[in-house]
Simulated assay, not measured.
Amino acid sequence: MNKLIYGFIEENKLDILNEWIETTKDNADDRVLRVVSDQVFTSTSREFVDLIISNIKGTKEDYTSRLTDFAEKVVRLGWPLTFVTKGLHTFGEIVFEKMEKSELVTKDNQMEVIREFGAWMTPMNNEIVSVYSTTWEKTVSLQKIALQELSAPLIPVFEKITVMPLVGTIDTERAKQIMENLLKGVVKHRSEVVLIDITGVPVVDTMVAHHIIQAADAVRLIGAKCIICGIRPEIAQTIVSLGIDLNQLTTQNSLQKGIETALELTDRKIIVMEGAK
């Protein structure tokens, strides 16, 4: 990079940093300001400017490592990529304007300085976009895996009895996850009765009912019984109006009733001890 630009940034680092923080915060997206405190915003902004400057004087390996760490941090903070790239552009504008005011940029060298700025900023912008995008994709992928694991858990509650509580919308992909977890879990826990609790499923339409029936049929095929819990009145009305046949399934309106039924199916029952409240 042009020694003139490098020297100016080094000598005026603090002024550039303060102006950059002030300008960036004034123009920041509300999403950025809502998710972080002023202190975090300022400290992260300082880190970003230090990162830009480190690209001037640091080694390639050190800069890449710091850039990756920074990208992971801003992804966790929820900063959009446009905010980061705009911040880099703002940094370049501030430096250039300050150099003009200091008369370091003249008519004679203006085009040369602009070319030097382009040669410095463009590769850095491309690298920031690449690292940010890779980090974001990695984060989304990990979150998706975590959500899949949590979307259809099979929980043993008593010996031979397990519960699968379902919350949220059930689509085709999630239905496959439910089926897979059910079959693996029944074998793993040696379940004789499985309760599928749909209390937290907001809408039960033809597709959702079909997936639930398929899951229950699959459980029966491997030797276990299935009870559908959480059949609320509005869901019952929907099922009847859709003409869906649940005669082959045991249903209960609550998980408590379902567990009582499951205990009976495994020759057990809940006994209230004398003196117990």
Rank of each mutant, 00 (worst) to 15 (best):
N2S: 13
N2L: 10
G7I: 05
F8K: 13
I9N: 06
E10R: 14
E11C: 15
L14T: 07
D15F: 03
I16L: 15
A28N: 08
A28R: 05
D38V: 01
D38K: 11
S43I: 07
S45L: 08
L51W: 00
I52F: 05
S54F: 02
S54P: 01
S54E: 15
I56S: 07
T64S: 13
F70K: 09
K73H: 10
T82V: 09
F83N: 12
T85N: 10
I94D: 12
E97M: 09
K98D: 08
L104M: 15
D108W: 12
Q110L: 11
W120F: 12
M124K: 11
I128D: 03
V131H: 02
S133F: 00
S133K: 13
L142M: 12
Q148F: 02
A152T: 06
P153R: 09
V157A: 10
M164Y: 00
P165S: 11
L166Q: 07
L166S: 10
I170F: 00
D171S: 13
T172F: 00
T172Y: 05
Q177H: 02
I178M: 11
L182T: 04
L183D: 00
H189W: 12
V193C: 05
V194P: 00
D197E: 08
P202I: 11
V208L: 08
V208G: 04
A216D: 02
D217S: 12
G223W: 00
A224M: 06
C229E: 02
P233T: 04
A236Q: 04
A236Y: 04
I239L: 15
L242D: 03
D245I: 12
Q248V: 08
Q252Y: 00
L255G: 04
L255S: 09
A262G: 15
E264T: 15
T266K: 04
D267R: 12
K269A: 08
M273A: 14
